[in-house]
Amino acid sequence: MRDKHVVIDVGDGAAIPDPEDKGLFTAWRISFFGTLGIIAYLLIFRPDPYLDIIKFLPDGIVVTFQVTFASIGLALVLGLIAGLGRISKNTFFNLVASTYIEVIRGIPLLVQLFYIYFALGHLVRVPDMVAAIVAMGFCYGAYMGEVFRAGILSIDDGQTEASLSLGFNRSQTMRYVILPQAWRIILPPVGNEFIALLKDTSLVSIIAVSDILRRGREFASESFLYFETYTMIALIYLVITLILSKILSNVEHRLSHYERR
């Protein structure tokens, strides 16, 4: 059997815990409960200033989540289109997708954020959140496009041939046969990108979106409690990414049922 064994490792998000790991002391548990423990300790034994800091942050956390989820939604749609474009035999579609990926990947995210934010500002009046989401979505769409492409190409050609020989056309083949299998291979790197994106949303604080980081910076700039504020911000980001990586690990486990003997 000519199975292609493909490992896509992007590796800028977070370590996804292994769902088969049944040990009591896993890296995930140590990090997660350790972080919660430190937060609890700081809030109980040093409520001044940590309680004030954490009270200042909730709306920033909400904004971070809003930007993350909206951007990832946009990035997945753009990524799927770009990925399909990259493998398309249609020269025009292929060229558009490839150019998009080349251009976006060659520009640092921070520069894109500034550019889209201020360039959009001159063209249309969009709220800062929308500008941030568009910028993040477009950037990550390009990375997702490469992940989708690699995922689709990793599926054995035999699957396509079998589907075509039954009478499915190319798009039905993609929809019923290739994508459902590619999704499983794509999920770990997509999850990784998702967590990387969540962390990168801290960049939107630069364009004045009031996310966790900006709220923290505002607090620190007035109280001069830089160390304490950034300690709390780091801990909160860590808790969020750890929870997300756990969720992704579980989803991945569920999707892989047909690979188990």
């Binding site: 059997m1 699957q159 041939e161 079998a162 589907s163 020989s165 009478g167 019923y176 047909y258």
Partner: peptide
């Protein structure tokens, strides 16, 4: 035209039953 391949090419994400019913149901 039914076709059988050297490397079987069963749809790996579908059960045996679903492998058989996918095309009749969709097409």
């Amino acid at each position: 035209l039914g076709m059988v391949f050297q490397s079987f090419n069963l749809f790996r994400h579908k059960s045996v039953l679903d492998n058989l019913t996918l095309a009749p149901i969709k097409l």
